[in-house]
Design a protein around this nucleic acid. Structure first.
Lengths: 117, 117
DNA sequence: GGGCTGCTTCGAAAACCATCTAGACAAGGA
DNA sequence: TCCTTGTCTAGATGGTTTTCGAAGCAGCCC
């Protein structure tokens, strides 16, 4: 949905990004970041994310057959990833294409770096 | 609980660790890793993890007062982190101390590195 | 237009989760 | 031994999540 209003997670609102091992996260930061981890906390979504991140972009029609799940279920999981700000989608003609939002992905990785303690 | 049998997640069972952006995760790998992300997908647990990771070790008695939650609720969240293999605990006299399992933490970080695609 | 295919949204059922209170257990001190 | 303090377990409850089938919308082709 390229015409969709705004991502549910505003990435600019995240106080930018010392690793969680560097100093304790405050409640506000945690409230912004936790939903991203939560979105990756389901095996189906983690695989979807991995399939999307492994290529520049990928069609839903190539994602759905990789799972033993109904179309609506896969679509739901993709929406969770979208709402978490982790991926973006765009309809082009008949098909809908998904791609990673690299800044979100990088942010998450940065949080898990080893703190300099 | 130092005397507790084994961590619920056997870290050695994780096929070790190309970033999820390098190639699609298979279902077995996803089933092992997703619970770790899921454990971090709650704001309370993310803050707990961050507090634990920021120091060599920390007493439950220092974790609980940081939240507006009952003791049992904090204890429950700590158990989720333990079961996910992310932290370890040990009773020493009156108090129970928690510390990060660095290998699990590093593994998670490695998964989120940018793939060489 | 009419019908087809791809994807999403809706609504409902079942499973799961966060939180609480009450109670149990462990260690230490009177 | 009994009492207190710190932590965990058990059980209950309300809220959320996963999943489905049915229905909707968007784009294509005849």
């Amino acid at each position: 949905m390229s015409k969709q209003a705004l991502p549910v997670v505003d990435l600019h609102a995240v106080a930018c990004c010392p690793p969680i091992a560097a100093r304790p996260l405050d409640a506000d930061q945690a409230a912004v970041v936790a939903p991203m981890f939560k979105a990756l906390g389901d095996p189906v979504r983690l695989r979807l994310m991995s399939m999307i991140a492994s290529v520049p972009e990928i069609c839903v029609c190539d994602l759905t057959p990789a799972f033993d799940l109904s179309g609506p279920t896969v679509s739901h999981h993709l929406k969770v990833l979208r709402d978490a700000g982790l991926v973006d989608s765009e309809r082009r003609g008949t098909w809908v294409w998904y791609r990673v939002r690299p800044e979100a992905f990088r942010r998450l990785g940065a949080l898990l770096e080893i703190g300099h303690s």
